[in-house]
Design a protein around this nucleic acid. Structure first.
Lengths: 357, 357
DNA sequence: AAGCGAATTTGAATCGCTTCAAGGAATGAC
DNA sequence: GTCATTCCTTGAAGCGATTCAAATTCGCTT
């Protein structure tokens, strides 16, 4: 017997046999019922019901039809990152919005180890990837490229010109916010940045910054310094601190910064997350913001608008980035496209002219 | 020619032919390289590279191997809900934590219309579903059942005994928080609840509450009233308001409540989300919390601990619920399991004894 | 030189469905 | 009554891999 199938769940072929029609007809009953005559349609439906068959198994369809109708969002962070980090959440909002609109599913892909990552990317049931690159960008890109599916990098820290990406004008945004502070009259600054390396923290040289592959960080520093230079500030004396974006390393940086004889009157934080920690620290120390010190952020997460005081920051169109990235995958034509979206300076309560000395 | 394959991407069979080995061997090279002799392994790898073959296509594997290694999280809300709602986010943290630990992917499944829902559930590439049931529970359950895969409902509003579920002791939690208020000396209450129906809002009768299928809401009311009864309070006079959990309907309810000649001294809100809105409204009206009015929530989302004042509430082990739900899918044995987790009363700043009359 | 177990490799059978060219039946026009 | 049309249905060819019993090879022992 070529095809007996006792015990197991019914298959398309079983239904066809039971209803006395061909497999193709059964397939049509489920996928394009309108082209099947009513009589046959009913007969097939009844046979299906009798056999407990509830529709074609996606496994089979997949192999034949070829598309998963899903896009993967990949990162090297733990998956919970997508639900905790404000930036990632907004991004996912954009991604899900766009994918939902086109009837595409969303699959979260992650991995602790590089090996696992490679495996997960290799076997993800998706038609393309959005790469959420913070650290580990290179590993993600390598794996995705191997999978030979369209993918787009969120240029959050990486700028490989051979890769499609959606990003923002980091240099321009940083320049704008630094200019704003200069125009208010500030002349003494400190920059607190994100991680340039896996484990680093503490004061770093400008050379070190320039050498990092983490482009978002690098570009923001560049933008800051360009603006300061326009105002004749000795940029080589502006201290730059690297942190792990966590409370401990940010506090450490602040402690060093405010030990100085003439501490800065303005802090350029490279992300809102950092800026918010800075805000807290200063206020706990009895320093008023913006009275004693002005603070700026970068990103424009929702929290930046509701902090006390609300944060002057560079607002990224985060949701739009997510949408664009999704569309880039869905409309992929094999070409490499790099999109750079504009950012906007939001001047809020955390900046003011420096106190007269 | 049975198998020529010019132009298209290389397949396992092409690599096998090129390397002069059988398909099975190539498969082994990629999946269990340790059982293939080094020489053959290298030969196959080279052939693969030469053909631009980067590993077995998941589509094929799937059909043969049968498992997707992914679980779906389904809801009728828009997908962005998972990244915006605090409760959902915590839940997803638990779900992703557990699934990541077992090397399983997570796929988000949603749908605006019932029809789409049915289709998406039918064709989702997953081994099981976690049903995030708020509204639309029945449609979700029906679709999932049809798919004949294991699924577990998060008993957020539904209690169908024929369905596996992970839930909490709503009655007990509600009883505890209401008791707490009674012990503080409160005697006049109002209950503000979640939606009992798709569009309803406004004061509802107890009968109406008892008749709703939305069990979480019903059980919480029941718990509240049990406690009040213990303290000899005339429960039939306690006003119960239904809302859509949005600002407008909550404000409307509050307006009515505080129009009364002798307004309540304590508000039992059925969720933290509602309680936080209540907090705002009261304070805007110049009523102090807990001075003039005590307010309690339910759920224990992170925001409840940082509000001003922090909210007295019933804390659900939300992350744990997510973990359990995931494990229930992964370890499914076909049986129906209903788990009820304990909740904990968190007494914080939003409750105090009522002012002396 | 035969015998044996371990280590590799092979071959062929699925997995369950979609697709599409081609066949048939029914309807309508002339 | 014939010939087009239109509308359904059929049949068979893949889609790309995994699996496992059976065959082969190899290195040693006896």
């Amino acid at each position: 017997m070529a095809t007996a199938n006792f015990g197991k769940a019914a298959r398309l072929a079983d239904v066809a046999k039971a209803a006395g029609v061909s497999q193709g007809t059964v397939s049509n009953v489920f996928n394009r019922p309108e082209i099947v005559s009513e009589e046959v349609r009913e007969r097939v439906r009844e046979a299906a019901k009798a056999l407990g068959y509830s529709g074609p198994d996606p496994k089979g369809r997949l192999l034949r039809a070829g598309r998963f109708n899903a896009i993967g969002v990949a990162t090297v962070e733990p998956l919970s990152f997508f639900f905790e980090d404000p930036f990632a959440r907004l991004l996912m909002t954009g991604i899900t919005e766009a994918s939902e609109a086109s009837g595409t599913g969303v699959s979260l892909v992650s991995a602790a180890s590089e090996e696992e990552l490679a495996w997960n990317v290799r076997s993800a049931l998706v038609d393309g990837f959005i790469l959420f690159c913070l650290e580990g960008a290179q590993a993600l890109i390598t794996s995705s490229r191997e999978r030979q599916l369209p993918f787009v990098a969120l240029a959050l820290g990486h700028d490989d010109p051979t890769v499609s990406a959606v990003g923002i004008d980091n240099v321009g945004g940083a320049r704008a916010v630094a200019r704003h502070l200069c125009e208010l009259g500030h002349r003494r600054f400190a920059i607190i940045g994100m991680r340039l390396s896996r484990r680093g923290a503490g004061r770093v040289s400008l050379e070190r910054v320039k050498a990092t592959t983490y482009s978002a960080s690098r570009d923001r520093v560049q933008g800051y310094l360009e603006a300061l230079q326009e105002f004749g500030i000795a940029t080589e004396e502006v201290p730059i601190y690297e942190t792990q974006s966590d409370v401990a390393t940010i506090h450490a940086a602040l402690a060093e910064i405010f030990e100085a004889a003439t501490p800065p009157t303005a802090i350029l934080a490279q992300s809102d997350r950092i800026a918010l920690v800075v805000l807290d620290w200063l206020q706990q120390r009895g320093l008023s913001v913006p009275g004693d010190v002005s603070v700026t952020g970068f990103d424009g997460v929702p929290e930046s608008a509701t902090s006390v005081p609300p944060l002057t920051t560079v607002v990224q169109p985060i949701v739009e980035i997510g949408r664009r990235a999704t569309q880039a995958i869905l409309q992929d034509d094999g070409s490499i496209r790099r999109q750079t979206l504009e950012v906007e300076l939001a001047v809020r309560g955390s900046t003011a002219p420096p106190r007269r000395p």
